[in-house]
Design a protein around this nucleic acid. Sequence first.
DNA 1: ATAGCTGCAAAGCTTTTGCAATCCA
DNA 2: TGGATTGCAAAAGCTTTGCAGCTAT
Lengths: 144, 144
Amino acid sequence: MNIPESLIKRIKESDQRITRQKETILSVLVSYKDHMLSAQEIMAKIPKSDSIDFATVYRNLKGFLDIGIVEQRVDPKGVSFFKLACDTKGGHHHHHFICLSCGKVQPIPCDIDYIQSISKEHGFEENYHTLEIFGKCKECLNKK
Amino acid sequence: MNIPESLIKRIKESDQRITRQKETILSVLVSYKDHMLSAQEIMAKIPKSDSIDFATVYRNLKGFLDIGIVEQRVDPKGVSFFKLACDTKGGHHHHHFICLSCGKVQPIPCDIDYIQSISKEHGFEENYHTLEIFGKCKECLNKK
DNA sequence: ATAGCTGCAAAGCTTTTGCAATCCA
DNA sequence: TGGATTGCAAAAGCTTTGCAGCTAT
């Protein structure tokens, strides 16, 4: 799976360098771009021939988070999951629909007016927010 | 701070017993009922005279979660925070507004029709969802 | 050349678990 | 009394850090 030029560009634009390890991690993320993977899962999907240290995986994921090309979620057990940031036009803020059956994550456009109106209604000043919907995606519903 | 009878009742109705340790933890949660506390923070707020083991705190928090009298959040570092469940009428599902300034958590009623309409729009079947809004609460805005 | 990266090993933290003793109902 | 609960200590996970050597630019 080849890595989009845009990602390479984003990395070079920051102070980060392109290394074999970063390319390996990115190619895993690109292959599973619709799914959240833990560091463990990413490691498991790296061919033994390209073996990378856990510390390097974590360090690079953090670097990717910093420049916004990767998104993170934390499950109730405190384990982090990562995926390539959804490329909605312009990298805009969006919400997530997560399929409980296949694990696919799909971006949903954000209705900011709605969020701000309920905030105002309660006297809040909204800075940021998250909305995640869990359930079954179109494909999994059809499979039944 | 005294513990509401309703909580004691809920615990007795499950298979759990009332112990000095549970009462101590609950009284901390009651005192800070609008704020999320980590296990560490809960421990720190327990008088030395009532000293409880960490394992006991975790075990009881888990027990409280099981019967729904406590809510949990996990921060990006994987640390869990707990608070007494918001007592919206009937313990109904609700959303959260979290003040970045004072840490207060306020329940917001859920507009399930809205959630289900955007789900349907994308071909999803919604099972459950979470909406959290971060910003400044009415009180903190007035302080400025 | 030189700042950034990597692997390795060790440490850090939060959370969990085993077990014998203790306590509530 | 008997099953639930506790404290203690040890272990388990996930993630981070120090450091010496290596590498991209």
